[in-house]
Computed example of a mutant assay.
Amino acid sequence: MQRVEGTRYTWHAAPDGGACFPTATGWTYVSNSEVPIVGGASAIGFDATGKVTSAYRILNGTTLNCAGGATPWGTWLSCEEHDLGLVHETDPTGATSARSRSAMGRFKHEAAACDPVRKVVYLTEDQSDGCFYRFTPFTWGDLSKGTLDVLLGSGTGPVRWARVPNPEVWLTPTRNQVTGAMRFDGGEGCYYTNNICYFTTKGDNRVWAYDAASATLDLAYDDDLVTGGTPPLTGVDNITGTATGDLYVAEDGGNMEINIITSNGIVAPFLRVLGHDKSEITGPAFSPDGSRLYFSSQRGKSGFIGGTDGHTYEVTGPFRR
């Protein structure tokens, strides 16, 4: 925990999911804190040259804020990772108070990704028998009310959705309310682009690809299918992408790498963090102009899970085009 350079703000411990948002003078990077009881989220402001201009808190009073996702209307969905966890919609500028969105379900939330074509939000669940969800708000841009569906299927191929009857108040967890709900071994990152929602599962080192246009499920990566040596990508976790179609997948453990999956399916290491062997890479996000990549080592060199450490980095491009 150190002060953000050029400010008087102390950056939070255990940084997790993150995203960038454009501003009138540059951009803002937001980051969750996966610390119990005092988790929440913070933000760093940058000017057009990439210089830090501010740092501040945007969410308080929440716990174990893991990943999340950005909305098309410029808010950050901060997700709590516990059995009754909520999604909290926050303002990256800090000007408006955060609001919990209980209609999106109470479960071990991990990440969220918005699909502006179908006007839904996809959600992952960090359980060994977790599910993949779709939230459809009654009004696009207002997440206070809507319906929560769960994905049904038996593997890759055609899939369908069914409504979760009691997403907010339940005796039976959301993942067990619908017969035939497809199980995923530890849902993690979630990223939508061009009709495809990519999401990762850490228990089996897979990157899934849900084609929303055809309602089919496929695999973009599976370490069990790698032949001829050690798989390049293990411990799959947070995921993001570029406008050119490349995916960037962060590792929880593994070699502490961010791996690239190119648009033609090549998987290769992009960067590695040395000396942080008991940590995980979190929060990868590109600046709006694509010139900078931000990410964190959640537990830093100490590897302390309780959260008193953590480092957030900036990598300057140019990146692959």
Rank of each mutant, 00 (worst) to 15 (best):
Q2L: 14
Q2F: 14
E5R: 14
T7D: 03
T7Y: 03
T10L: 14
H12Y: 07
A13L: 06
A13M: 06
D16Y: 05
D16L: 01
G17R: 00
G17K: 06
T23L: 06
T28A: 04
V30G: 09
V30S: 11
P36D: 10
P36Q: 06
I37T: 12
I37H: 13
V38E: 13
V38T: 14
G39F: 00
I44T: 06
I44N: 05
D47I: 12
T49F: 11
G50W: 05
V52A: 02
S54T: 14
Y56I: 10
R57K: 15
L59I: 09
T71W: 13
P72R: 13
W73A: 08
G74E: 08
L77C: 07
S78L: 07
H82K: 13
L84P: 07
E89D: 02
E89C: 07
T90G: 00
T93N: 07
G94C: 11
T96A: 05
T96Q: 08
A98Q: 09
A98T: 08
R101I: 04
F107V: 10
E110R: 06
A111D: 14
D115Y: 10
P116D: 11
P116G: 11
R118M: 07
K119E: 14
E125F: 08
D129F: 13
C131I: 05
R134V: 03
F138W: 09
F138G: 11
D142W: 03
L143A: 12
T147F: 02
L148C: 07
L148N: 04
G155V: 04
G155L: 02
G155T: 01
A162R: 13
V164P: 02
P165W: 10
N166C: 11
P173Y: 02
P173R: 08
T174M: 03
T174H: 02
V178Y: 09
V178F: 11
F184Q: 03
F184V: 10
G186I: 01
G189N: 02
T193P: 07
T193I: 14
N194D: 15
N195S: 15
F199T: 03
T201G: 11
D204K: 10
N205E: 12
R206V: 08
Y210P: 03
D211H: 07
S214W: 04
Y221N: 09
D224R: 15
G228K: 05
G229V: 04
P231Q: 08
P231C: 01
L233I: 07
T234D: 04
I239K: 06
T240H: 12
T244I: 04
T244D: 13
G245P: 09
G245V: 01
D246M: 03
D246F: 02
D246H: 14
V249P: 09
V249A: 05
G253E: 03
I258S: 06
I260Y: 03
N264D: 15
N264V: 15
N264F: 15
G265L: 04
G265P: 03
I266Q: 15
A268N: 07
L271Q: 01
R272I: 02
V273D: 00
L274I: 06
D277A: 05
S279M: 00
S279C: 00
I281D: 03
T282Y: 00
P284E: 02
R292F: 14
S296T: 11
S297H: 13
G300P: 11
G300R: 10
K301T: 15
I305C: 09
G310S: 05
H311E: 15
Y313K: 08
Y313T: 01
E314Q: 15
R320M: 02
R321V: 12
